[in-house]
């Protein structure tokens, strides 16, 4: 095969991988801190894409300018869902932890269907069709932006965790909930902030993906599944892991789709997912705590 095609495949894989990474960062943050797997994660993404769509629809502004608004909306939504649902699931039996968010996802997806019907919509701006050309290949500008933002966010979050007080409080909570509480960390607030930030991160993803993809009520389902795979591969709770996992899954998907069969590319990454769960449940860069706390 010729070099250009190989490069194009690799770049396509990295781009969709960047999208997966961007979507997964919020999920991995929430899991890492709270030990909650948000099964409604894909629906959060759907909601933020719709938020971006409606803001665009009514203002006509560039979705990139509207991103801060989407982020704010999703942050507020995260706080609301934490208060109404998530708070009650912490420390509850496993059935509650899993099925509260499964039910939430079902509710959100169908509420979207009721409110906005099953038709798909897209955002038509010059930005959504712009292309970048280099080395004989071309890529979609909106996908490129999404991937770059994923990297930037992962780095910012990494710095936030390492050097700021709230970040330290979160890390302390992860390492020892009781100890952190004794040291005066308000666990409930840490959890609320984490969930809201995780949700706001999905807001960024939604705002950046809205110009690139058709938007409809079940759009989150497949992105959601992909983000579970990414987070498990990268290691639940690891920001850099999500980044690495996202790019890896993107490349694996694209290459297997090209060389095996496009109809089987999902099957390939589910297989990878199972193998990781079985042989290395902490993932590539998972926290050591994950296998002790997370696997229960």
């Amino acid at each position: 095969m010729d070099g250009t095609l190989f490069l194009q495949l690799l770049v396509s894989g990295l781009l969709i991988g960047g999208v997966y990474a961007l979507i997964s960062i919020g999920l991995t943050l929430i899991f890492g801190v709270m030990r909650i797997v948000n099964f409604a994660h894909g629906e959060f993404l759907m909601l933020s894409m719709f938020a971006a769509f409606w803001l665009f629809h009514f203002t006509g502004l560039s979705p990139y300018l509207l991103a801060p608004l989407v982020i704010l909306l999703l942050f507020a939504y995260g706080v609301a869902i934490y208060v109404l649902v998530i708070r009650r699931t912490i420390g509850s039996p496993m059935v509650v932890q899993i099925f509260a968010t499964v039910g939430l996802g079902l509710f959100m997806q169908n509420a979207a269907l009721v409110l906005w019907s099953g038709d798909f919509r897209t955002i038509q701006t010059p930005a959504s069709t712009a292309l970048l050309r280099f080395a004989g290949i071309q890529v979609s500008q909106s996908m490129m932006i999404a991937s770059l933002v994923a990297i930037v966010i992962a780095l910012i979050l990494f710095a936030f965790m390492a050097w700021t007080y709230p970040g330290k409080a979160i890390r302390a909570t992860v390492q020892d909930r009781v100890g952190a509480q004794l040291m005066g960390v308000n666990i409930d607030r840490v959890f609320m902030m984490t969930f809201a930030i995780g949700s706001a991160l999905v807001g960024i993803a939604g705002a950046l993906l809205a110009p690139a993809y058709p938007i409809f009520p079940s759009v989150g389902a497949n992105f959601g599944l992909a983000s579970f795979v990414v987070v498990v591969l990268g290691g639940m709770g690891s920001m850099t892991g999500a980044l690495l996992g996202g790019f890896l899954i993107g490349v694996v998907e694209t290459f297997s789709g090209f060389f095996i069969d496009a109809a089987l590319k999902q099957a390939v990454y589910f297989l990878v997912f199972i193998l990781v769960l079985v042989f290395r449940p902490t993932g590539l860069l998972g926290q050591r705590g994950a296998e002790e706390i997370g696997l229960k």
């Binding site: 095969m1 095609l5 194009q8 495949l9 396509s12 894989g13 781009l15 969709i16 999208v19 993809y213 079940s218 389902a221 497949n222 992105f223 992909a226 998907e253 694209t254 290459f255 297997s256 789709g257 090209f258 069969d261 496009a262 109809a263 590319k265 999902q266």
Partner: peptide, 20 residues
């Protein structure tokens, strides 16, 4: 002659295969 799932998030492998 390629098939794909309508629910997929990315069609670049299909398109690149067709292109090739």
């Amino acid at each position: 002659n390629e098939s794909y799932s309508a629910k997929t998030t990315d069609l670049s492998p299909v398109i690149l295969k067709l292109k090739a």
